[in-house]
Structure formats: structure tokens, C-alpha cells
């Protein structure tokens, strides 16, 4: 074959194309190996932004997650108004108040396109504390969740949270932290301390035997005073 490539004019053209193609393939492979953040899951995450085609659930729709305890009588959520929608990177994510499950973990709405607002903690209108919103990076049944692309959010990116009283609270991403699930800092859930927003999802190695992801990604955002 090499004799044909060197011998004929067409063969030489093919060889040139081969050099170009070889360089391109080599470059593509090396680029993906060098920056795993771009390729991580990119081939396997189910259709991007598919949740924008799903009907937006009203925040008053009961969550399909069933806690072990019977539902409590209607309780005041907090003195300040509850968050209803979180907007980031052009996505509007409906929010539901959630609390603690019997195993002590934070409850999450079952549908992957709904975020959970940690109701025992701070609300956006409170004078202090961290507003916590958690959402699925993905689920076994539905594929990519609302926070599938949270890791790509740059520092400086705006996030806004609308509340039941009609206010819109604006934040700016200040930090992205990866922690082992057992090492999630307690002050992320505190009602004391500086006003801020924490958006949490899962990341890191995945245990197929039921352990799930081993890490949490926490995106911290400070109030936009501008």
C-alpha cells in the first residue's frame, strides 16, 4: 500500500489527507485526555436542557418523595418568604421546601427537574445565614438532572432566586468546592453567619453497588449588592 501511496498522484493526495486526519485525531484525543472536565460525562449525559421541554411544576404540587413519617400538619415555613424558582445559566428551576429524612440526610424532590430548598435553614430574605438549594446531578430513572452542568458554572456567574412574596434575590457565584460527602461543612446549613447561597449536587466517583456518588459539589454565591 505504501508503494501505491508514494507512486501515484492520487496516492500522494490521500497520504496528505492522511497526515491531516492523523494530526486531527491525535489532537482531539490528546485534548480530551488533557482536560477531563470537558469530556467527563459529556458523551454519556442524556440530551442537554431536556428539562426545558418538561412542564414546569407548580411549587404547590406535592413532592412525590414519601418520607417515612406521616405528613405533618401545615407548618409555617419561615418568617421570610419561601423560594419558588432558581434561575441560572438561562434555566428556571422550580423549587420545593424539603427537610430532613429519618436517616438524617437532606430530603430531595424525586423529580430530577425540581430543586429542594432546605426549609429548616435560611430563606433569601433573612438577615443572615446560608440559603441551601440541592438538586440531582442525575437519576437512574431519568438521566441528567437540573444540576448536570453545575460544575461548569464560572465564578462571577449570576444566580437569582424568586420568592413567594414576589421578590427576586440576586447572587454572584464566588466559589466551587468539592468535598467528600462525609465532610460536608456544617456551616453550609447554618442560619447564622453571612448571607449567601449554596447550591449542592453530587459529583466524583460513582459506586455502582448502591453507594452513589462519593462527593458533593457546593457552589457558593454571595449576594449581588450591585
Amino acid at each position: 500500500m505504501i508503494r501505491w501511496l508514494t507512486g501515484s498522484g492520487v496516492g500522494r493526495a490521500v497520504a496528505c489527507a492522511g497526515v491531516a486526519a492523523g494530526i486531527a485525531m491525535l489532537a482531539a484525543g490528546v485534548t480530551q485526555l488533557a482536560s477531563p472536565a470537558d469530556s467527563r460525562g459529556g458523551e454519556r449525559i442524556v440530551a442537554e436542557r431536556s428539562n426545558t421541554d418538561m412542564p414546569v411544576r407548580s411549587p404547590s404540587t406535592p413532592s412525590t418523595a414519601v418520607p417515612a413519617h406521616p405528613p405533618a400538619p401545615a407548618a409555617q415555613v419561615t418568617a421570610a418568604a419561601a423560594p419558588t424558582v432558581l434561575t441560572m445559566a438561562g434555566q428556571d428551576i422550580p423549587l420545593e421546601p424539603v427537610s430532613m429524612l429519618p436517616d438524617g440526610s437532606m430530603e430531595l424532590p424525586a423529580p430530577p427537574h425540581v430543586g429542594g430548598w432546605w426549609a429548616p435553614g435560611a430563606a433569601p430574605g433573612d438577615p443572615a445565614g446560608t440559603v441551601v438549594v440541592a438538586g440531582h446531578v442525575d437519576t437512574a430513572e431519568h438521566g441528567a438532572g437540573i444540576f448536570a452542568h453545575l460544575a461548569g458554572l464560572p465564578v462571577g456567574e449570576p444566580i437569582s432566586v424568586a420568592t413567594t412574596d414576589g421578590q427576586v434575590h440576586r447572587y454572584i457565584v464566588s466559589d466551587l468546592i468539592h468535598v467528600h460527602k462525609d465532610d460536608l461543612p456544617a456551616d453550609v446549613f447554618s442560619r447564622a453567619g453571612p448571607r449567601r447561597l449554596a447550591v449542592i449536587t453530587c459529583t466524583g466517583p460513582f459506586d455502582d453497588d448502591g453507594g452513589g456518588y462519593s462527593q458533593n459539589l457546593v457552589v457558593l454565591a454571595r449576594p449581588d449588592t450591585g
Binding site: 437532606m106 430531595l108 440531582h136 446531578v137 442525575d138 437512574a140 431519568h142 460536608l184 449542592i200 458533593n216
Partner: peptide
Amino acid sequence: GVHAGMGG
């Protein structure tokens, strides 16, 4: 803990 992902 926050278990926000089971799809892998």
C-alpha cells in the same frame, strides 16, 4: 449528607 444523584 446530601444524596443528589443516582444515575452515575
